[in-house]
Structure formats: C-alpha cells, structure tokens
C-alpha cells in the first residue's frame, strides 16, 4: 500500500499546482504576458499573410494572362489599330478593353472599375469570364449583348445586397448611368472583402455606348511572345502615338502600393516579435522570482537543483500553455480586426 516513492513525485508538484490555483490572478497575469506576446506576433502575421494574398489575387483577376498592353499616348486608342494588329503584325490573340472609373451609388458609394470586354476575345485572357455564372444559364455573349447589362462579383452583390435584375446607378463624370445586374461572377478563391476595389464587367458594345467611345477603346490587351513583340515594334509602333507596355508596368502603382504595405507589415511583425519575446521573458522571470523563498526552502530541505529545475519548468510549461492557447485565439481575433481596417 505504501510503495517506496521517487523523490519529488507527489508533494512538490502538488504544492506547485495548488499555488497556481490559489493565486489565479498571479497565474492569469503571468499567462497574460505570454498571451499578449503570442497574440501580437500571430495577428500581425495573419494580417501580413492574407493581405499579401488578397493583393496578388485581385491583381491577377483584373490583369489575367495579359503580358502586354497597347496604349495610345493621346488617351483612347482607335479600333483601326485592332484591325492592323491582325493584318500587319499577324497577331490573332488580342482583346480590346474599355476601362472607366465609376462610382456605384449605393450607400456611401463604392469606387469601381468598369470594364467593357469582348467576350469572344476574352476567353484567352481572364479566368473570371469563364468562371461559373450563377443566375441565367444563357450563353455569356447573349447575356451581355443586350443593352446596359453588367456582371458584378458575387461577393460585392452579397455585401451590397444586390440580386440579378437590380438596377445600378453609376456616377461617371458629371452624369449618372443606369445599368442592370445580369449575373454574378464567382471567384474560385474567395477573396471577397479584401479586394482593393470593386469592378463591373459589361460587353464592350455596351461600354462603348455608355461612355460614348465611338470607334475607340481604352487599350488592347495582348499575350505576346518575344518575336511577336519584335513584329509589333516594327509595324504598328511606327505610329509614334502608340505605345506597347508590359502588363506589369500598367500595374506598377498598385504593385508599389502593395510592396510598401507589405514592408510595413513586415517591420511591424519584427517589432511584434521583439515585444512578444520581451513579454514572455518577463512573465516567466516574474513567476520564478516571486517564489524565491519557496525555492530556497526546498533547497534547504534537500531538494536537488535538478528537481527544482524540473518543477519550475513544469509550472512554466503549464502557464505557457494557457498563455499560448489564449494568445492564439486572441491573435486570430486581432488579425481579423486588423484586416477589417
């Protein structure tokens, strides 16, 4: 009934545990240091990760597979250039695009990019056009060719409580345009609320009428090989008003913004790591220092340094576990809040 026991397998752990439970505030405060440390590090990291992801995806979905973009230095580009691309440079894969900034007049208003696309040329370029269309099962071109029909992202529809058939008012310049929501774009990756801006998509004919473009478009998107670039340079670009830029270049501002934002978060993340480590170190030192007399007593009673070390470590791990679990929960929560900002 009384087997010989090991040296400290009973009363000392009992004394330690009782200490933690009879001083819940002290235990809690020790844990809270760790909690804060873990939460700060984690939340910054979450914010960093997902904002980076959101930027990548939204840029990908607007730019698509486009490698180059043909622009005019005078603003819009004549559609005759579109014909010349085929006839003179032999480029068959090209997509004229009308791009205008509008404000959707719902609530406080949403700044959005209105994209007029040619559904036939587009399939090669952008994923989201071929993505699922909810609502009518009719052919995409039919859906869009009738007047003033637009597609909006499903996530935006949800946020603005829009359904198919609703009319949207768009502020463009001094005027207001009316369009009808004809379908929703479902993104495969749910990047919903994290998109930097909203966008509307219509058939290029619709856009041309809405924005009075006549025979002009905003730019022509291209997917080019180096030899094709050379061919275009030799033919089309003999017209000095035309300019061929790479897709990266047209996204330069957005990209540098992302970079700056990310650099910021990285710096914050490092700072958080230092602050977090400091908080954790402090919490652990505190929990040992406040029990120095108890440890001295145990040493006098003949408990070896090793056994005391094991006991202190066990208690530290216990406190650290509480702190870490709390910190992970808090960190995820904080991270979400930061992303909402």
């Amino acid at each position: 009934m009384y087997p010989p026991r090991g040296k400290i397998d009973h009363f000392i752990p009992k004394a330690g545990l009782r200490y933690l439970f009879t001083h819940p505030w002290q235990t809690f405060l020790s844990s809270i240091g760790i909690m804060l440390g873990v939460a700060v590090i984690l939340s910054i990291d979450i914010a960093n990760e997902s904002s980076g992801k959101a930027f990548d995806i939204s840029m990908e979905s607007v730019t698509g597979k486009t490698t180059h973009r043909l622009l005019s230095r005078q603003g819009d580009i004549d559609l005759s250039t579109y014909i010349k691309l085929r006839t003179e440079a032999g480029i068959t894969i090209s997509a004229p695009v009308i791009e205008e900034n509008v404000k959707i007049l719902i609530g406080n208003g949403y700044t959005a990019t209105f994209l007029g696309l040619d559904p036939f040329s587009e399939r090669e370029f952008r994923n989201f056009i071929s993505a699922d269309l909810t609502g009518d099962n009719t052919e995409l071109s039919q859906l869009l060719s009738s007047n003033n029909k637009v597609l909006i992202p499903e996530s935006f529809a949800r946020e603005a409580k829009l359904t198919i058939g609703d009319t949207l008012s768009l502020k463009w310049g001094d005027g207001v345009l009316r369009v009808v929501c004809a379908g929703l774009i479902k993104s495969n990756e749910d990047v919903s609320g994290n998109r930097i801006e909203q966008f509307l998509i219509s058939d290029i004919e619709t856009a041309r009428k809405l924005f009075n473009k006549g025979n002009f478009v905003s730019h022509i998107d291209l997917i080019l090989t180096p030899s094709e670039v050379e061919r275009i340079t030799k033919t089309i670009l003999s017209n000095p008003t035309l300019q061929l830029s790479t897709a990266e270049k047209s996204n330069e501002t957005a990209k540098s913004m992302t970079e700056a934002f990310r650099l910021n978060l990285n710096a914050m993340s490092l700072l958080a790591l230092i602050v977090g480590l400091f908080l954790i170190y402090n919490a652990m030192t505190f929990s040992v220092v406040q029990r120095r007399r108890l440890l001295a007593l145990l040493r006098a009673a003949g408990v070896t340094q090793k056994d005391i070390f094991i006991q202190v470590m066990a208690e530290s791990i216990f406190i650290a576990s509480i702190g870490t679990i709390g910190g992970i929960v808090g960190g995820i929560f904080l991270g979400k809040i930061m992303l909402g900002l």
């Binding site: 000392i12 009879t22 006098a300």
Partner: peptide
C-alpha cells in the same frame, strides 16, 4: 532545518509539510 520564518510550504497543509520531509527521505511509510 528551522529558520526564523517561512519554514513551511504555504500551499501544503501541516500534515503535507511533514509528509514532504518524509517523502524526500524515503520515509513516507
């Protein structure tokens, strides 16, 4: 050992304090 103060482990009862001394010396019988 007997010190001026703080001789006993505050989170153990009187009995447990004595039993700890026994346990340490394999006398917890």
């Amino acid at each position: 050992f007997i010190f001026q103060f703080f001789n006993l482990i505050p989170t153990l009862t009187v009995n447990e304090n004595l039993h700890l001394a026994l346990e340490l010396t394999d006398n917890f019988t």
